Every structure is written in structure tokens, then in C-alpha cells.
Amino acid sequence: MEFTCPSACPGSCQVDCYTCKPVCNCDKPGAVCQDPRFIGGDGTTFYFHGKKDTNFCLVSDPNLHINAHFIGKRNQNMKRDFTWIQSIAILFNYNHTLFIGAQKTATWDDSNDRVDLSFDGQPITLPQSEGATWTSHTSPRVTVSRAEDSTTNSVVLEVEGKLKVNAKVVPITEEDSRIHKYGVTEEDCFAHLDLGFKFLDLSSEVSGVLGQTYRDNYVSRLDIGAKMAVMGGSGAEFQSSTLFSTDCSVSRFVGDNGEKNNSEGFDFEGLMSCQSGIDGQGVVCRR
């Protein structure tokens, strides 16, 4: 069967196998798009505006933590900022970090790739060709690839056994700015990320702006009857000091499947010969 994407998303939809209908990528559970608009794991749609130039925890679990950096513009007629997600950092297995960000851009040209990528602090170079793929040599394996039918600005990130993220860099267009009164000028089109998360191994204690909606016992505090349901407050409990910090008050992150690697900072080189006669890498202490 051939389908046509809905008019709201003419070039970014997928077929829902349950309803056998095309659905906009930003309308599926796990989506974070626009200003920013969230689709929770429970299917609820809500907005979380946060604050510009601030980092917020989207997901925090014992072995997975995702922060987002918000950019924005002050609206003089409102008590809040217009905000968008400029970048995210994914932390897992205690010492691994995966970063994706949208480069600051004045005039948008979709033929120019505005994606920044890095893994464990090292830049990832992804050729501008459909299907181009980068794979790590770590465990779990990390894969970054160009999205289908795309050579720029749209990538798929996968951490084996943990999650899959569809990420696309998009601008605020003149039409967007006119309709929503963003007041965007020619100096900056506020390039940002539209995101779609699929989680493979969350625990029952997961938290974060998005993560909490995946708990079995989650009870939404949103006014579902509101035209635009907003997660209110300043979001202080979700704030992180930096993009790569796990110090938000709702943090659940420990890393390494809940067991910290206490040998961090020590460099054991070569083989150790113990009095017990057991040879190998490591140290055995006896009191």
C-alpha cells in the first residue's frame, strides 16, 4: 500500500503498524519537537518551555541519562522564553557520552549540514551520502547513520540494547516566526533539534521531563483539558549544571548497570603476580 504523509508533515512521517496509517514523526510517543512539544510514553502531549541557555534532564535512569540544552528568545509580552532544544548529551555505562547538536545558523540552507556529533569527546565525521554510517568499537556498540533519503541534517543514533534516536536539525522559518510571533531576525534562525526517542531498557524508577512518563505508576499532573497542556513551574528539579552533568535533583544515574567502576583513575599496567600464585590483571588486597 502507498501512503501520503499528512499535510502537517509532508516529508517526515512513518506508518503506524497498529492503525495502518501514516503518522507525523513528531506525533509519536517519545517525540520532542518544536517549542518544545513532548509526546510522553503514556501518549500524553504536553509542552515544557524551560528556560533559554539552561540544561534540563530529559531522561534519568540508573544506566542512562539524557540532558538537553535549551536556546531561546525572550518574549516581551509573556513571562517566559520561547525555547528550543539545541543539543542533547546521552550518558551511559558510567563513562560513555554521545553528543548531537545543531550549529548556530543565520540563513538556512538545507543543503548545508549543520549537525555536530561526538562520542566520548571525539568528533564524529559522517559523509554526506545516504546510508553513511559510523560505528564505535565499544560495548555496547554505538551507531550513527544518515537518515533514510537524507544526506544532511537528519541522523539516526543507536546505542545497542538501550535506545534509538531520530534527530533532525531544523530552523525557525519566517512563516513560523510570523505565526507564533517569535520575532526571529536574519542574524539567527535558531536552528534546533526535532527528536524521536525509542527506549529499549528503562527501569521502573526512570525520571526526567520525558522519562517519568514511561513509569508504570506515572500519574500526570497536567491539565489534560487545556488547549495547550504545559508542564508548569520553572522546572528547577530537572535543571543540570552543565550538559554533561547528572546533578539534577531527580537524577537516577549511577552507570555501569548500577555498579560504579571504582577503579577509575587507576592505571593497572601489565600483569600482577600475587603471593597466592594467581596471575592476572588486577589487585587482591588482604587485611
Rank of each mutant, 00 (worst) to 15 (best):
S7I: 15
G11F: 06
C13L: 04
Q14K: 03
Q14L: 06
C17M: 13
Y18S: 15
C20V: 15
V23K: 06
G30S: 08
R37K: 14
F38W: 09
D42L: 11
F46P: 12
Y47H: 15
H49D: 14
K51E: 14
K52D: 01
N55S: 04
F56Y: 13
F56E: 05
C57I: 01
A68P: 05
D81T: 10
W84L: 13
Q86R: 15
Q86S: 05
I88R: 00
Y94G: 11
H96I: 09
L98F: 05
I100W: 02
K104H: 07
T105M: 03
T107Q: 13
D109Y: 00
D109R: 08
N112Q: 12
R114D: 07
R114Q: 06
R114N: 13
V115D: 01
D116K: 05
S118R: 09
G121P: 03
G121D: 02
Q122P: 00
Q122F: 02
Q122I: 14
T125N: 05
L126M: 10
P127H: 00
W134A: 05
T135Q: 12
T138F: 03
T138M: 06
P140H: 11
T151M: 05
T152F: 02
S154Y: 04
E158P: 01
E158F: 02
V159M: 00
K162A: 04
L163Y: 09
V165L: 15
P171D: 06
T173I: 07
D176V: 01
S177P: 10
R178M: 08
H180P: 00
C189A: 10
L195P: 01
K198R: 13
F199W: 02
L200H: 11
V206F: 14
T213Y: 13
Y214H: 11
R215C: 12
V219S: 07
V219L: 10
D223L: 01
I224P: 05
I224D: 06
K227R: 05
V230G: 07
M231Q: 07
G233C: 07
A236K: 15
A236T: 01
Q239D: 05
L243M: 02
F244T: 12
S245L: 04
T246E: 01
D247L: 10
R252L: 01
V254Q: 01
G255N: 09
N257C: 11
K260W: 06
N261E: 08
S263A: 15
F268Y: 15
Q275P: 14
I278H: 12
Q281N: 10
V283Q: 12
V283W: 10
V283C: 14
V284N: 14
